[in-house]
């Protein structure tokens, strides 16, 4: 039997598919949470990193975190994601506010992938930004 190699063999993966097919590239190993380096802790860290970056920039002195068996909730008191870009920031790969800012160059989360990876690998993902008396929320 000959192996055919045609246009049908070439695939372009949607960003979510890509992350879900190759989670290792984004979060290392998967695991079930019994090991401290399992993926679910890396997801938590990705979200924490963004909150910490805001603090390092001088915004927010407190971060609230609660983790139950299945769910993580992280609230920072930074500036909030600009309301018009909330959805893009968590679902469009390579979207982020850290590309050209000098201060952000010394942060870790500057590749614009972290939050999207968390989104793609979550059954439920909700983001809400608060800015100057207005709020914007999106559920995935």
């Amino acid at each position: 039997m000959s192996v055919t190699y045609t246009e049908d063999n070439i695939k372009t993966l949607d960003w979510r598919e890509h992350i879900r097919k190759r989670p290792g590239m984004y979060i290392g190993k998967l695991g079930n949470g019994l090991s401290p380096d399992d993926g679910i802790y890396v997801l938590t860290k990705e979200i924490m990193d963004n909150a910490i970056d805001e603090h390092m920039m001088g915004f927010g002195k407190v971060i609230e975190v609660s983790v139950s068996e299945k769910q993580v909730r992280i609230r920072d008191y930074g500036r909030g994601i600009p309301l018009g870009k909330v959805i893009d920031c968590v679902s469009k790969i390579n979207t982020g506010g850290k590309y050209d800012s000098e201060a952000f160059q010394k942060s870790v989360g500057l590749n614009g992938v972290g939050t999207k990876a968390v989104n793609a690998l979550s059954r439920y993902f909700s983001v809400q930004s608060f800015r100057d008396g207005e709020s914007k929320k999106a559920d995935f």
Partner: peptide, 18 residues
């Protein structure tokens, strides 16, 4: 002001996670 994120990892990827 600030950001709130809530997520639940997907069981299909993280089997029986806790």
């Amino acid at each position: 002001s600030g950001t709130l994120v809530i997520f639940e990892p997907d069981e299909e990827i993280f089997e029986n996670y806790q």
